[in-house]
Each structure stands twice: as structure tokens, then as C-alpha cells.
Amino acid sequence: MLTIKLQSLIMNNQVKLDRYKQELAKIYSQRSQNYDESKWHSQITHRLVEFAQIQPGDKVLDIATGTGHVAIEVAQLIGDDGRVVGIDISSGMLEQARKKVAQLNLKNIEFQLADGENIDFPANSFDLIFCANAFPLMADKAATLRLWSTFLKPGGYIGLHSIAETGFTGIVVLEKVLENHGINLDVFHLSNTVNTIEKYQDLLTQADLEIISVEMENHGSYLSLEDTKKRWNLVYYPSPGNIPNPLTQLSSEEIEQMKAEFEEELEQLITPEGIWNNGTTFLVLGRKPVD
């Protein structure tokens, strides 16, 4: 069975995280109870699994597994001879994932509390490595991708999904309002991430991975005004360059003013169908060369 070297990663049943990731783990644990209510998450994770070349018996690592969308679908495809390891920094998300696995009585899957940027598996362990929706949250994307590639067997694949720069209309509007007040929270690292096909291709090349495919897809849909307004909560998301969060230095009146401006901007986008959410994403597949 594939196992993480827990003695170097976990102390007192907790992952050793910097402050940025501690805050990130806390936020996702708070979201874990209703995370699966979003149809978008299951839609894009299914596309990532569909995009990859999964075979019965594959050994698969799912990084930032969340509530197990990718890991569980993969486990049902690879059969009893395959194995899935799902890792996440959020204990709350993993608790939900384990509940779903128990209900489905899946025996070929395990979950571990671990940081995707600081893991230590034997080289050439996995046929496939997935990371759905969380790659933009990695602090050092180039180094992280190189690390993951060492765990791949020759001929193995890394499959990534991430949001494009204009993927979420609410986030685009939010960042615009914050920038008008001189604040750059770098929500989901959209202003400092791999936001073009060429950048993804370059990252794969730096990790010595063959470029199989880098595609953009649109999963757009109309959202209600109230649902789009909930994007305001992203102002409390951490990023490596913003610890502590700049909003902690502002008065409650200043924060309420920015929130009001955000909602006013959204109200200008309303149509009879709702607010159009672009939903533009990247699907990325790289392969480790065969020696």
C-alpha cells in the first residue's frame, strides 16, 4: 500500500503548515459541510477524470482532493487492482470524503492529511496524478509540479484543472473593486498564476513533462444576484503575499463601503436570466517521458 512518510509531515495528527496554509485549511474545513452542494465542482472534476487516460489497475494520487470528487470517481474506474490516495490540508474536507467512501463501500481508496507541496512518496509510484481546482493555490507552482513529476512512473500522466483569469465573473468584479481601493488580495492568485496556455506549456516543460494537451473550456452558467454576491467572502481568503490580510487594517466602515460598491457593480450585470458566470477553465495533461 502506498503511504506518505507521516513522521516527516505530521505532528500530533496535524500537518505542519505555514500561516497561509493554516488559514486556507481553516476556511475549507468551514466550507466542508456544504461544499458538495455546488454542481460546478462535480462537473469540472468529472471533466478532468474524463480528460485523462485512466486504466484498470492504475495507481493514482489526487492532490487537494477536497471531499473526494476526483478520487471517488477514479476509484470506481480502476477496479480492485487499482489504488487511489487522496490528500488534503483540510481535515474537514477529508472527513466528508471518508463518509462518502464508507457509504459507497469502496476499498481501493485512502485519504491522508498532507500538504501537496510537501509530500514524500517513493519515486515512480503513480500512473496518474490529479489536482483539480487547487493548482492556482500552490505557493510555488513550478517547484511543485517538478516535485509531483518525480512520483510519476515513466509514461505516467499529470492532469490539472484550474480557473482561467476571467473564469468567475464575481471574482473579476471583486478584484476590480479592491484594486480601486489600492488593495490586491490576489484572489485565487489570478493575477499571479498560469493564466495562458503558453504559461502552462512552459511549466510542463520546466518539469520535464511532455505536453499532451492544454485546453480551455467554458462551463458558463447564469447565477442569481444573491449567489454572485457571495463571492464577497473571498476577501477573507489568504494568499502567500498577503499575510496578514490587508482588510484587517481597515475600519468596518471602509469594508462596508467596498462591499456596497461590489454589489452595485454586480447589479449592473443583472439580466432576466441572472448574471452570466463565464466559467472558463484550463484542462492540462502532461506525461513523464519513458526512459
Score class of each variant (00 low, 15 high):
residue 116 G to L: 06
residue 117 E to K: 09
residue 117 E to H: 10
residue 118 N to A: 11
residue 119 I to K: 04
residue 120 D to V: 09
residue 121 F to H: 03
residue 121 F to W: 05
residue 123 A to D: 14
residue 125 S to C: 03
residue 125 S to T: 15
residue 127 D to G: 10
residue 128 L to Q: 15
residue 128 L to G: 02
residue 132 A to V: 05
residue 132 A to E: 03
residue 136 P to N: 13
residue 136 P to C: 07
residue 137 L to W: 15
residue 137 L to P: 05
residue 137 L to S: 06
residue 138 M to G: 05
residue 138 M to Y: 14
residue 138 M to R: 00
residue 139 A to T: 15
residue 139 A to C: 00
residue 139 A to F: 02
residue 141 K to G: 10
residue 142 A to V: 14
residue 142 A to F: 09
residue 143 A to G: 05
residue 147 L to D: 07
residue 148 W to F: 11
residue 149 S to K: 09
residue 150 T to S: 15
residue 151 F to R: 05
residue 151 F to M: 13
residue 152 L to P: 13
residue 152 L to A: 10
residue 153 K to A: 12
residue 153 K to H: 10
residue 154 P to H: 09
residue 154 P to R: 08
residue 155 G to W: 09
residue 155 G to A: 09
residue 156 G to P: 11
residue 156 G to I: 10
residue 157 Y to N: 07
residue 158 I to F: 06
residue 159 G to F: 04
residue 159 G to E: 13
residue 160 L to P: 08
residue 161 H to A: 13
residue 163 I to L: 12
residue 163 I to V: 14
residue 163 I to H: 11
residue 165 E to F: 11
residue 167 G to R: 10
residue 167 G to H: 05
residue 169 T to R: 03
residue 170 G to V: 13
residue 171 I to K: 01
residue 171 I to M: 14
residue 171 I to R: 02
residue 172 V to W: 03
residue 173 V to R: 06
residue 173 V to H: 03
residue 174 L to Q: 04
residue 174 L to H: 07
residue 175 E to Y: 01
residue 178 L to R: 05
residue 178 L to D: 02
residue 180 N to V: 00
residue 187 V to I: 15
residue 188 F to A: 10
residue 189 H to L: 06
residue 190 L to S: 03
residue 192 N to T: 15
residue 193 T to R: 13
residue 194 V to Q: 04
residue 194 V to S: 05
residue 195 N to E: 07
residue 195 N to A: 06
residue 195 N to H: 05
residue 196 T to W: 04
residue 197 I to N: 02
residue 197 I to E: 12
residue 199 K to R: 14
residue 200 Y to Q: 06
residue 203 L to Y: 13
residue 204 L to I: 11
residue 204 L to N: 08
residue 206 Q to K: 15
residue 206 Q to C: 11
residue 208 D to W: 00
residue 208 D to Y: 11
residue 209 L to F: 08
residue 211 I to P: 08
residue 213 S to V: 04
residue 213 S to C: 12
residue 213 S to G: 03
residue 215 E to W: 03
residue 216 M to E: 15
residue 217 E to H: 12
residue 217 E to W: 08
residue 217 E to F: 12
residue 217 E to G: 10
residue 219 H to N: 14
residue 219 H to L: 14
residue 220 G to T: 10
residue 223 L to Y: 09
residue 224 S to V: 06
residue 225 L to I: 07
residue 226 E to K: 09
residue 227 D to V: 02
residue 230 K to M: 00
residue 232 W to I: 04
residue 232 W to P: 01
residue 235 V to L: 13
residue 238 P to T: 08
residue 239 S to E: 00
residue 240 P to W: 02
residue 240 P to D: 02
residue 240 P to T: 04
residue 241 G to W: 02
residue 241 G to C: 01
residue 241 G to E: 12
residue 243 I to K: 07
residue 243 I to L: 11
residue 244 P to T: 06
residue 245 N to E: 02
residue 247 L to F: 06
residue 249 Q to K: 13
residue 249 Q to W: 00
residue 250 L to I: 05
